[in-house]
Computed example of a mutant assay.
Amino acid sequence: MAFTSESLKVFLAVLDGGSFSAAARKLGRVPSAVSMAVSQLEAELDLTLFDRSTRKALPTPAARALEPQARQVAGQLNLLDAHALQLHQGLERRLTLAMAPELQTGAWSRPLATLAREFPTLEIEVRSASQSEAVRMLHEGSVQLALVFERPGIDEREAFLEAGSQLLVAVAAPGYPASGHGVPLGEAQMANARQIIVASGEPTASDPQIVLSHRVWLTDSYLATLDLVQAGLGWAYLPQPLIQPLIASGSLSEVAFDNMASQMRLWVDIVWIKSRPLGLGATRYLELMREQLKTGPRRS
């Protein structure tokens, strides 16, 4: 086999340095050793890779033809070495996060871009789940981290990181009665206006939203809820980052209540199980979230 990791390194060093002496300095070797390695590679390939008629080592057309694939293979070898080191340091094969649908439009996915850059071989899976489903998956061990809204009480099996907040806004289609046409809705009107919420089965106390209506439709995602609201079939609390452009364009209207605010801020926790050590990817995700939250609002 002509090309090895070592001969590949020498070949690229000569290409980059333009001479055997420059390659030798880069590799920490003497020029004669580099020249000998190249000569051996040329003999095994039965190709002339460098023109030695001048003091420089000028690449031949054969060398230039081999260069793109050589650099690709060298990159893959570097990636393999880095992956092996990260596995030794505790990198998990896959990092799985359960995330409430309301949070997928917020800041909680931003650290994933850094993880992709720092750990390019790490598989990342983001599961959309209701509040109760996310917690269930966490305790069953099918996810390492769960991003959920703050819950009453503390489970001693869990550790958590406060992770900012999400603003939900009550909205309706401009023509829907609950939009109020600029007039705040009273309690009786709220109770009779259809509310569309994201929940798994019947709404429970663990769901992050307040149920104000006697007439409720359920969906399993905020995009489905948004479609129903835009179709004029009900009103809903929707994440502010999702609906702000639609309010600005007049496609949605903010619902006004006469006895409460139309906006609801919910605090978010990232939760994991104390008895299960986190891998390198999950640990780094938490570090990135802490850095991101230094300038953000904190709950009182």
Results as ranks from 00 to 15, higher is better:
A2V: 08
T4G: 05
K9V: 11
A13D: 10
G18T: 13
G18K: 10
S21F: 01
A24K: 07
G28P: 02
R29N: 09
A33Y: 09
M36T: 13
A37F: 10
V38H: 12
S39L: 12
D51V: 14
R52I: 03
T54M: 11
R55Q: 13
L58V: 15
P61R: 11
R64H: 07
A65M: 13
A65H: 12
L66P: 07
L66Y: 05
V73G: 09
G75E: 04
L77W: 07
N78W: 05
L79W: 01
L80S: 15
L85A: 12
L87G: 03
H88T: 15
L91F: 06
T96N: 07
L97K: 13
A98H: 11
A98R: 12
M99F: 10
A100N: 14
A100S: 11
Q104M: 01
T105C: 03
A113K: 12
A116Y: 09
R117K: 14
E118D: 15
F119E: 07
P120K: 10
P120T: 13
T121V: 08
L122V: 08
E125H: 06
V126H: 08
R136N: 04
S142V: 05
L145N: 07
L147W: 00
I154V: 04
F160C: 08
S165M: 00
L167Q: 15
A170C: 05
G175R: 02
V183L: 00
L185R: 00
A191H: 00
A191R: 01
A191W: 00
R194A: 15
A199M: 04
S200Y: 09
G201W: 09
D207A: 09
I210E: 05
I210Q: 08
W217F: 11
L218Y: 07
T219S: 10
D220K: 10
Y222I: 15
L223G: 12
D227N: 14
L228T: 00
V229Y: 01
A231W: 08
A231H: 07
L233I: 03
W235G: 04
P239S: 02
I243D: 11
P245M: 14
S249T: 13
R265L: 13
R265E: 14
K274V: 04
S275A: 14
G281V: 06
T295S: 14
